[in-house]
Design a protein around this nucleic acid. Structure first.
Lengths: 328, 328
DNA sequence: ATCGGTATCGATACCGGTATCGATTAGGAG
DNA sequence: CTCCTAATCGATACCGGTATCGATACCGAT
């Protein structure tokens, strides 16, 4: 059986398609009895409205596109929950486009979302380039940047204060007695990573510890990236007694590497992560980290698109909290 | 600036909308020069095609709807990666509808996806009821069930052999010397859970161990469910030296509870999970588990919809492998 | 000169809804 | 009885594409 249309309902109910539309949408100018009958017929025929036709006519899709690096990543999964829950409250659905931290994939994803005529766009940019995002200004589509702070882009953003957080994390290691603290970060163009690194340097300087370039590693993100950076440090015989890792996922790799190197945590080396993903308390040793307001990032980002209270803010900065566990 | 249409391009290029369409879609019956000019104009004006209009005209959306309990759940996140990667190869996009293990949410999600006129539907059902899924047969939309085995539904399915896997997991505990093995499962209507429980019973019987109802717990899923079940066992002073947990996420809760009860793993109690989520090797102690073919479930499920090689199979059964780590 | 074939292109209908506007009817006021 | 108003409803245009079909022009063959 094919899909039922308003025309089918109209024929069976003996009214015009217009009346069907009015009846089904609770509009005025319909007699109560007619309305009942139409609804009855629609139900009996198994009518389901066609959103494509609606989108076309209303010039509104009630879809918001979300562009993130990977919706399976536990950090972004939480952010997405915030977006999704808020979207639902506002009568929107979301389509997710993963970038896999690749600029071309990001550009493709954004194009796809524009083709679907999303009503808004939430982007956590790859940051290799911003051409695709700047290009968005050609259209009248509202969009916002999530989880990253980008200077000079003149686009609404919601992000975590990485300088503050990085500074707090590093100070915690210093208070725990660490003297030679390494920073293991993401790609250099990743502003979240570079801000946390700035915070790290700030904390070191404030405490009279010199910043050593050998102790700063940037590279691939995710578990493998953290693993590799520790192995690099070890291969260069760089000494360290503390590590501040860009995020918890990389911290997993860091911990794995340290274990393989028979370095005890936290006795020999203390480790602190960032994000507080849900598995941070279950890993061994449990991970000290900065708890980011993940759900809120998604929630606020969505509201920046459509909620008049948040709409005209061009920047929302969130603060993360230190969560002390076993690793530091 | 509003969106550019074929009409705008036609006006500027001095041709008809039809010619624009032909030129942009690589169709024949267009002069090479005309084609070039149209493409040029389209590019200059920043044309992006409108998928809603296309969907309406072509009666095809190139979207597949995916209904799962929670895309943030590490197990389903992997399955979704399989779906997404395969969909991309076939030129499809996906829209995700989370059910939160709630029948009403599932029914709503399915309705939304039908409204968007998805070309296919992949569902991991809540299993409280099947009315919404059976209702799908009214439409001509292809769909398949992922990760669950449901008898008597006459719908294509791809799932893991839970009886086999549950049996292997339980036998592993028995070989490790466990005599009193508990099973901690999900809700009773969850067929994946009940099949693993069947496998558990089968293995016990085969090894001359009597099945004790006190040792079988069913209840809430996810971390909290596992935690609560262990605490229930402890409150009833039920003795056990091994636990087979429905999935790894619940195993996290189990391990948390055991730690709080000062029960050592694996010395006092051995624990085995199911799924092999990516964090299983990082938790403490690292989790022995059954590795499910998560990506493949998503991949095969998608192919069942459209790929002529897989299309006419009504069931694909996958086998999981025992991964031995510290917890058992 | 006429004809047939081919290449190129445009007018128009249609997909499934909704909005605009006009038509019809009934009822009450004058 | 006429006029006005409100309630109800239908005909039609439109959203942005594409498919169908017909029109036109140009070529070489007869």
């Amino acid at each position: 059986m094919s899909y039922v249309t308003v025309k089918d309902i109209a024929k069976v109910a003996g009214v015009s398609t217009n009346t069907v539309s009015r009846a089904l949408n609770g509009k005025p100018d319909v007699n109560q009895e007619t309305k009942q009958k139409v609804i009855e017929v629609a139900h009996k025929l198994g009518y389901v409205s066609n959103r494509s036709a609606l989108s076309l006519k209303r010039q509104k899709s009630y879809i918001v596109g979300v562009v993130t690096e990977d919706n399976a990543n536990p950090f972004w999964a939480e952010v997405l929950k915030g977006v999704e829950a808020t979207a639902k409250n506002y009568g929107y659905h979301i389509i997710i486009a993963n970038t896999s931290r690749n600029y071309e994939t990001e550009a493709e994803g954004i194009k796809m979302l524009i083709e679907r005529r999303v009503d808004g766009l939430l982007i956590s940019p790859v940051q290799e380039k911003y051409d695709d995002i700047l290009n968005l200004k050609r259209y009248e589509i509202p969009f916002a940047i999530m989880g990253r702070h980008v200077e000079g882009l003149d686009v609404p953003m919601v992000y975590d204060d990485g300088i503050r957080g990085g500074s707090i994390a590093t100070e915690h290691l210093i208070k725990q007695g660490c003297k030679k603290i390494a920073f293991i970060g993401a790609q250099p163009y990743n502003t979240a990573s570079s801000e946390r690194c700035q915070g790290y340097k700030k904390a070191l300087q404030k405490n009279g510890i010199t910043v050593e370039d050998d102790l700063i590693k940037t590279g691939g993100i995710e578990i493998g990236g953290g693993y590799k950076s520790v192995m690099d440090l070890a291969a260069n015989h760089t000494e360290f007694d503390g590590i501040f890792v860009y995020n918890d996922l990389m911290a997993l790799g860091v911990i794995k590497a340290l274990k393989e190197l028979k370095i005890r945590i936290p006795e020999d080396v203390k480790v602190i992560g960032y994000d507080d993903i849900s598995y941070a308390s279950f890993i061994c040793p449990s991970l000290t980290t900065m708890r980011m307001k993940k759900f809120e990032i998604g929630e606020i980002a969505f509201k920046m698109l459509f909620d008049s209270n948040e709409q005209n803010k061009d920047e929302v900065v969130l603060h993360s909290d230190l969560i002390i566990r076993e690793s530091a």
